[in-house]
Nucleic acid binder design. Sequence first.
DNA 1: GAAATTTTTGCAACCGGTTGCAAAAAACAT
DNA 2: ATGTTTTTTGCAACCGGTTGCAAAAATTTC
Lengths: 333, 333
Amino acid sequence: MAITLKEVAERAGVSRSAVSRTFTQGASVSAKTRKKVEKAARDLGYSPSLIARSLATNRTKLIGLIANNFQNPVFLEVFDLYTRALQERNLRPLLVNLTDQTDPSASVQLLKQYSVDGVIVASSTLPPLFAHAFKEAQVPVVHAFGRFASTPDIHIVGIDNEHCGALAAETLQKHRYKRVAFLGGPQSATSAQDRATGFIRRAKEIGLEIVEILYADAYAYDSGQRAMGKLLQDRRFEAVFCGDDLICMGAMDAARDRGLSIPKDIGFIGFNDMNMAAWQAYSLTTIRQPTSEIILSSVDLVVSMLDTPGRAPEVRLFPCSVVERSTLKPIEN
Amino acid sequence: MAITLKEVAERAGVSRSAVSRTFTQGASVSAKTRKKVEKAARDLGYSPSLIARSLATNRTKLIGLIANNFQNPVFLEVFDLYTRALQERNLRPLLVNLTDQTDPSASVQLLKQYSVDGVIVASSTLPPLFAHAFKEAQVPVVHAFGRFASTPDIHIVGIDNEHCGALAAETLQKHRYKRVAFLGGPQSATSAQDRATGFIRRAKEIGLEIVEILYADAYAYDSGQRAMGKLLQDRRFEAVFCGDDLICMGAMDAARDRGLSIPKDIGFIGFNDMNMAAWQAYSLTTIRQPTSEIILSSVDLVVSMLDTPGRAPEVRLFPCSVVERSTLKPIEN
DNA sequence: GAAATTTTTGCAACCGGTTGCAAAAAACAT
DNA sequence: ATGTTTTTTGCAACCGGTTGCAAAAATTTC
């Protein structure tokens, strides 16, 4: 069917090794044979089979990309960045959609079968245990958006969620709010837990009163909308910290639906600064997570592990910042 | 490193072929040896290498998934559906992010190197020429969301965009609009062209006056917002047909920003019925594209081509329908 | 129980590349 | 021109599976 090494070798009048060498980086071939081979290859329309090469070299140039939230548009940005970053390094993502199948061993099995060179777990909702399974299977792994641990046993790239929660508390106080609510992501997500912890701790320190704590059941619009519906049954707060922009948008729409005006009647601060946060219909004040830095860094890290498998586990944290738009009442001087 | 066939064979006390056969569908092995092999495999934690298998069988179970719009959240739904549908059939997507590199031959080259079993081009903006390149390279290909052709030379799964454009015109007339504008997707996209054609033709037939025709530069929020800004400089229309929901949301926000109220001052009808169209902040009346059907069908089609490579090219069109929400003024009786 | 038939098994070649090693060729030194 | 060093080349084994074929084993038939 397709053209093989052998045919090119015959046409160029050289050995198979010579052909192989002209197509592998840093191999020793004279300019003369290289030229002959390249011509023959061009004539025949040859391109080397990565499958065969993978078998021989034990490298596939495939990186498993594990995700489990296809409801949140922020993941489209994430995929965009990952595919580009990997493509630039001549690697390809093998996408695994985790849906609800929580069993790590199945994915490990799967990606092992494909002999991926490395794995990036891109999720803030998966437990650390998940990335672990790969480490145990000797597959280089990076947990992006994962939970920060002071003595990590796997590579983690992300943010300090606790600190970000604290940042939210400070921002609300700066805007002169006294009584607030917390509307987090799913309670099982480490990111949601940590943001809550930091928020609550800092609020206590600076005298911000938290009158409600509720967790949405997913990082999704509908979940935010529903949860806000519950919170609004007896509103004793003036602003809400939402653990995610999408949840926040759902919550805002629920509030507006009840005739509340933002930020006049109620304030909101979100989390992520996804593209949509800047949309006029929301114009969300939010905490920016440096998605792009996290992604680039996690790709770099997994790439470096390909060469240095024994690398000591590393935590890379990137700073978050407040992006002020118009969902908190203006600060009066 | 990893456990191989040979080691399992030795431990089970059988030949390598026997092991191979217990792990391949429909091969002849006695219950007794199967049991022995399975035990040995379990003990050793063996899982067969798909790479090696691919090399031998010339099948990789990899399907190239080509996309070029990572700005539009509808594509997250698309990815979700594709990854699930493929996973269910024991196939995996190899994602190619086309960004701006328009050269088909590069992607063909790339996917040929990975020996993908088939390719799905999932884009309404790529020219037919693109999918062609794969056909010529003998790779089974389906163009999902592609342009309908009465004598197709490749498989196409999608909708009749002209008819959908006509549907939009009829809906606007039903809602008693007289003078309307068309705000399409990028003019280079066949989908945008066809929706325009159908809309314009039908409008003429039923006496709906089109006073403006403009194309956004991408299927994106910002593009819609900008384009609407232009249209609003001299507004002589009462409603707008937007060739895409996301464009429509941008356009709506631009209109509201100028103090217009929807649908009192201006009406909108979108296209796609993406999840977000149902959001309270927009509650968009739109034309539903049966995304899920298109995707499932295109996966089925590419799978069937794996067995029957010579299959005659086929066009599969799915009907669209109007989803009424609240961006067109109510019909008075 | 022997012959005929069917099923199971192992051998060995193959898929399309890579790579260590030794021989051959080229380049350099004297 | 000869000997030495460096570079290039081909051979052959290997990566981890699959599969056609013939022999061996099990099953059926009479």
